[in-house]
């Protein structure tokens, strides 16, 4: 589904990613962990198509297409969804209006009929309920005045509406209490299917008790320095990162 090859990225002349390689198959869930500043969020942003990064080398192929050539909205319509680490407040635009526009743009692209207002509302109410949010939230401006937990749940709501092929969660667990974490995890688990893949970026192993990964990768100093299964996350929780990621300077020679 997605192949990242030797991806090298810099921002303002500073090298952030120094040759990332990653293959993602349909149905799989990859956790990407790593210390602060290791490039996790940069990788997420690049996948979603955010401006401001210089791709120095490498490629990303998504369903056989060059992902880096696609505009962000095309990526979204082709099935990529990024749950933002810091969801953006958009005063003046209601969640309802925003999601209907987004969903219909996506549906149109996928050759489906646009949803009528009534069908959209029924669907939205059905999707929002398990996330423990009131339907009234749909009438509020996008993320405006939302608590941290509400913002993250809203991201999961949007994801469940747009039904992506590749869901990327950028530190969606950060700052959540255990109840909210469970709600978010349930939302993600409900979406897991054989043709849908996830990349879960997190700083904490805790999330992976609730969303069980097939693979765990450790990003250090701009490269994937180790890959393993879920036991790697537990080991990281116990031992920290220092044994595989040097505190400063160069990445460990031992890659996986």
């Amino acid at each position: 589904m997605l192949q990242i090859r030797n991806l090298r990225v810099s921002v303002d002349g500073q090298k952030i990613l120094r040759g990332v390689n990653l293959d993602i198959q349909p149905g799989s869930l990859h956790a990407i962990m790593g210390p602060n500043g290791s490039g996790k969020s940069t990788l997420a942003s690049i996948l979603a198509g955010r401006d401001g990064y210089e791709i120095e080398a490498g490629s990303i192929t998504y369903h056989g297409q060059d992902l880096l050539e696609m505009d962000p909205e095309i990526r979204a319509r082709e099935g990529i969804f990024l749950a933002f680490q810091y969801p953006v407040e958009v005063p003046g635009v209601t969640t309802m209006y925003f999601m209907r526009e987004a969903l219909n743009a996506v549906r149109k692209h996928r050759g489906k009929e646009e949803l009528s207002a009534g069908d959209f509302l029924r669907l939205a109410r059905q999707k929002i309920k398990p996330l423990g949010m009131e339907a009234g939230m749909l009438k509020r401006a996008v993320n405006e005045g939302f608590s941290g937990g509400e913002k993250k749940r809203s991201e999961i709501f949007q994801m469940s509406m747009l039904e992506p092929t590749l869901g990327i969660l950028d530190e969606t667990d950060s700052g959540l209490d255990i109840d909210a974490l469970q709600v978010v995890a349930d939302g993600v688990n409900a979406l897991r299917s054989p043709d849908r893949a996830f990349v879960v970026i997190t700083h904490y192993q805790r999330l992976l008790n609730h969303i069980v990964p097939d693979y765990v990768h450790v990003l250090g100093d701009g490269r994937i320095v180790r890959s393993g299964d879920k036991t790697l996350a537990l080991e990281l929780e116990r031992r920290g990162y220092s044994w595989i990621v040097p505190a400063s300077g160069q990445a460990a020679a031992a890659g996986a």
Binding site: A48, G49, R50, D51, D71, P72, E73, R75, A76, R77, F81, L82, F84, P87, V88, E89, V90, P91, G92, V93, Y97, F98, M99, E101, A102, L103, A105, V106, H109, A141, Q158, L162
Partner: peptide, 30 residues
Amino acid sequence: LDATAAFYLRSRGISAADARNMLTYAFAAD
């Protein structure tokens, strides 16, 4: 226009032109 907000809207499948319109309208809405 807030470039971050525009990117957020686009990352959900909304075209650049529509994102721009939405944010322009949102600015004027109150």
